[in-house]
Each structure stands twice: as C-alpha cells, then as structure tokens.
C-alpha cells in the first residue's frame, strides 16, 4: 500500500477538522476492515486519521436507554453487564461475529461502517460498481451465493456483513453523528442504504462526518430473544442468513416484537410487516410461518443464492421459536 500520512487526534473537533482538510483521508479506529481493504488495494486513503484517542469509549445507562460510544470495542460491549442483562440480543449478535481477536479490535463505529464482503468488491481485477462506478456488477451473473435477496438493484447485489448492526436495527437504535455543521442523529434503520444506482455509498453519513455513538431505547426484550446465524461453519464465518428476533410476551401472546435479518440485503433488513402481523397474535409455529411468508414478500434471488428463499423464512421461524422458548 501507499505510504499514507498518519495523524493522531484527541478530540472530535480535531478529527473533523483534519478530515475537512484532507478530503481523501479516512478515519481509522480498529482498522480490521480498513487495513484489510487497503492491503487489497480496494481503497487508498492519502491520510489516516487515528481516532482511537477520542473520548468515545463509554457505555452508559441514560434515562431513556443505553448509550454506547463509537470507540467501544465489540468485546467490551458484548461483555458489558448492562448489555448482557438488559440488551442481551445485542450481546448475542456480537458474540456471533468475527473472532475473539477481531472483536477486541473492532469498534462499534467501525462495525457500523464496515463494507461488504462481496468478492467482486474485494478483487480489483473484477468489475464492481461499488468499488468502481460503471465497471459493472460481477456478482449479478456471477458467484452470488452470499448475496442479497431483498432491496438489490441491477447495479449491486452485495450484502451488509455485520451481525451487531442487525441487532441494533432490531432494537430501534439511533446513530449519533458529529460533523462540520454540528451534531445530528439518525435512526439506525435509516443509516445504511440500499444500493440503487449509487452502490458506492453504503450509508447516509455525509462527507466530513464522524459517528460519535449509538443509543438504544429502553425495552423489555430481555427473556425472549435470539440471534440465529446460519453459516458454512460453526464459527468465524459470515452469515448466509441471520435473524435477530426479540419478543415481549404477555402469557402466550406477542405484546411486542422486533425482527431484523442479516445476509439478505445491502443494509440490516428490518421485517416491519412481519412484526405488525405478529403483534397481538398467540405464539405458535404456524403464526411464525405466516410471519415468515409475509417477511419474504418481494424477495428475489440470483442463482447461487436461490437457497436463501428457503433458508431465510426457515431461519425466521427458527429464531422466533428459539426466542419464544
């Protein structure tokens, strides 16, 4: 890789300022995704702005829920007492991701920003609209076993790879952002975007902005939760399909439910229609199967990933069954 320039910053303001002056620069925190991509030649920032010293490392309970700083490493979130007790879905999803070593490096902000694992995106000798707009989508008619069945376009059928984000999408989290024009926040489900005609953009973060943290509103999804991840080996692999399921039960009745899927779309895929259907229904496998059918509306496969049309609904049912206990 090119010998980029390197700057350490110790405040959010400095980080934003340095990036403003270096539009071809990039923030670096854990580095587990960025350095990987730089080694592959997928990206070549002229400057790395090391944000590891920023004071964004707190996990705190607030009046309305939980606040997690962008620079908290994944393993610290996973092991956090409050997270384990009150937001176990998040802990479970985190544990399903990557390896213990990577979870000790990767930060919450970096996890949110991580880019697709699409092999055509990774190989600079192959076409990829995300990496090189206009070069074509190698996956569309290529080896697309890992690829999207929801919300894809003819420009890009890549999927978002995170596990953590699936849980955060399910839990109605909010992303907190700082930028040259001040602070703003955005619902987690609106943070990542679908590829459309501009697959180069993974999310709605604006140029010059930095993720400061996420908040999760308080909820009662404590006992009846499950994060199901189906993959090609028992651990240390990306999801073929994953489901974050959270139920709040009143006796046998679904009082409240959250469902999101991973490995199926360019963003964490929230199953709002299925949630609506399930709310107020009695817990049963039949109901879950109906919910899965609703969730699968509009799904489209591309050949090698045809199996996801069967695996995804099966996973939804299984995750709900597991969550329901």
């Amino acid at each position: 890789m090119i010998n980029f320039e390197y700057t350490r910053v110790s405040s959010v303001k400095a980080a934003i300022d340095v990036l403003a002056k270096n539009p071809t620069g990039s923030f670096i925190a854990g580095g587990t995704n960025l350095i990987d991509l730089m080694k592959r030649g997928v990206t070549a920032p002229s400057r790395l702005i090391d944000i590891n010293n920023l004071p964004l490392k707190q996990i705190e309970e607030t009046k309305t829920g939980l606040s997690i700083g962008a620079l908290v490493i994944n393993s610290d979130v996973e092991e956090n007492d409050i997270v384990q007790k009150k937001y176990p879905l998040l802990a479970m999803a985190l544990k399903a991701g990557a390896s213990a070593q990577l979870r000790n490096m990767a930060t919450v902000g970096g996890n949110i920003m991580q880019r697709t694992r699409c092999t055509y995106f990774h190989d600079t000798a192959m076409p990829c609209n995300k990496r090189e707009p206009g070069s074509g989508c190698g996956a569309l008619q290529g080896y697309n076993r890992m690829h999207a069945i929801f919300g894809a376009s003819d420009k890009c059928i890549a999927v978002h790879p995170s596990d953590m984000c699936i849980a955060l999408a399910a839990l109605d989290a909010t992303v907190h952002i700082s930028g040259p024009k001040g602070e703003r926040k955005i619902l987690f489900t609106n943070f990542h975007r679908l590829p459309g005609d501009t697959p180069g953009k993974d999310n709605t973060l604006l140029k010059g902005e930095i993720i400061a943290g996420v908040t999760i509103p308080e909820n009662n999804f404590i006992k009846n939760i499950y994060y199901l991840k189906i993959r090609d080996r028992a651990s240390y692999a990306f999801a073929l399909v994953s489901v974050a399921a959270a139920l709040e039960l009143s006796g046998e009745t679904v009082k409240n439910v959250r469902l999101a899927m991973g490995g199926v779309a360019h963003k964490p895929w929230r199953l709002t229609e299925a949630e609506k259907f399930l709310t107020g229904k009695r817990v049963s496998k039949e109901t879950f199967i109906q919910a899965a059918e609703i969730a699968m509306k509009g799904a489209k496969a591309y050949g090698h990933n045809n199996f996801k049309l069967k695996m995804a609904p099966a996973a939804i049912v299984e995750a709900l069954m597991k969550a329901a206990g």
Partner: peptide
C-alpha cells in the same frame, strides 16, 4: 462440509481465494 474452491468461469478467476471465503474447519467444528 465446507471446502470448495470457486472459479468464476467468465473471468477464469478464483473468487474465494482467502480464508474468509474458502472455509476450512475451525475449532468449533
């Protein structure tokens, strides 16, 4: 259960030439 070398025949090029995409057994398997 998991090992499979994949070539995209349109390009005659490997598409899973790494340990994340070419799966070998890990401890949990």
């Amino acid at each position: 259960l998991m090992e499979e070398g994949v070539v995209d025949h349109r390009y005659g090029r490997w598409v899973n030439n790494n340990f994340a995409d070419y799966h070998v057994a890990v401890q949990a398997d």
